[in-house]
Structures are given as structure tokens and as C-alpha cells.
């Protein structure tokens, strides 16, 4: 007698495989659209209940600078959205120590609570991911 699985197993595709996603942000906001578009993709990933982390390297740290006021350049200020990420269960925000230092910034200058990482720790974080998206 042979056993049959008795039909197609639907579980595989829908049981919700959780992968580690890292969004790497390296550009200043407003000069280009990368910062805003990255944020849009992050919010979509949150809807899929994935394990999401955000990394801010180099000029990317400027994306989460406090006090952004964009009226003068007639562009929407999207920075408050970073504070809303918590509501989407996105709480893993990592910032490059070297990037902050080169720009004369500290954690106090940032909009949201973050974990500051040295280059080696950042490399480890990147290495642990299933998916890395670059902006």
C-alpha cells in the first residue's frame, strides 16, 4: 500500500514564513527621493509581518534628524513617519557610529530611539539577513 498526501498541501505558501529583511539607507533626504521611497517599502513589508530592521549609514543618518521643516522648499516633510514605525512593530533601527561622528551628530539629534553600531557590528547585522534592500 502506498500512502497518498491526499491533495495539495496549502500550508507551505501561506503559513507565514518570516524572513529577516534589512533596509539599508545611505542617502540624505529631499535631495533625492530614495529616503521617502525606502520608507514606503518598509511600511509595505510591515504589512507582511516580516522581521524588519532598518540601517542608517553615511548620509542616511540625516534621514532621521530632528527638526526637519520643509515648508521653505515646498516639499512634504515625511520625517514624522519614522516615529510611526513603532506602531507597525518596526523597532529595530540601527545607526552607524562612524556616520554620526563624521557629521557632528549624536543620538540626541535623532527623531527616534536607535541602536548605534560600530562598523564591525553593522557588518554582522548585514550578514545575518535573509533579504537586504538598498536605497
Amino acid at each position: 500500500m502506498t500512502e497518498s498526501t491526499g491533495g495539495i498541501d496549502m500550508d507551505e505558501g501561506t503559513s507565514g514564513v518570516v524572513k529577516k529583511f534589512l533596509y539599508v539607507n545611505r542617502k540624505a533626504p529631499y535631495g533625492t527621493i530614495y529616503a521617502l521611497e525606502s520608507l514606503e517599502v518598509v511600511l509595505i513589508a510591515a504589512a507582511f509581518d516580516q522581521d524588519v530592521s532598518l540601517a542608517f549609514l553615511e548620509d542616511g543618518v540625516y534621514q532621521i534628524a530632528k527638526g526637519q521643516a520643509t515648508k521653505g522648499i515646498d516639499v512634504k516633510n515625511f520625517s514624522p513617519t519614522y516615529r510611526a514605525l513603532e506602531g507597525y512593530d518596526i523597532e529595530k533601527l540601527y545607526v552607524s557610529k562612524d556616520a554620526l561622528e563624521a557629521r557632528g551628530l549624536t543620538e540626541k539629534d535623532l527623531l527616534v530611539p536607535v541602536t548605534v553600531l560600530g562598523a564591525e557590528e553593522m557588518a554582522d547585522l548585514m550578514d545575518q539577513q535573509d533579504v537586504v534592500l538598498s536605497f
Partner: peptide, 27 residues
């Protein structure tokens, strides 16, 4: 910043302006 010194040095021979609306936008 890492470039402040170089810019301060340049201020001795050139005039440097910055667009304030862009400074404000970036906090």
C-alpha cells in the same frame, strides 16, 4: 563635521552662502 575645517579655511578667501530653506528642511 568632518569637512568643517576645510570650509572654514576656504572662508578666508571666498564668500560662502547657504540656502536657508534647504537647511531648515533637513533640520
Amino acid at each position: 563635521t568632518a569637512v568643517s575645517k576645510k570650509v572654514e579655511e576656504a572662508l578666508k578667501k571666498v564668500s560662502i552662502y547657504a540656502l536657508y530653506p534647504d537647511i531648515e528642511a533637513r533640520g
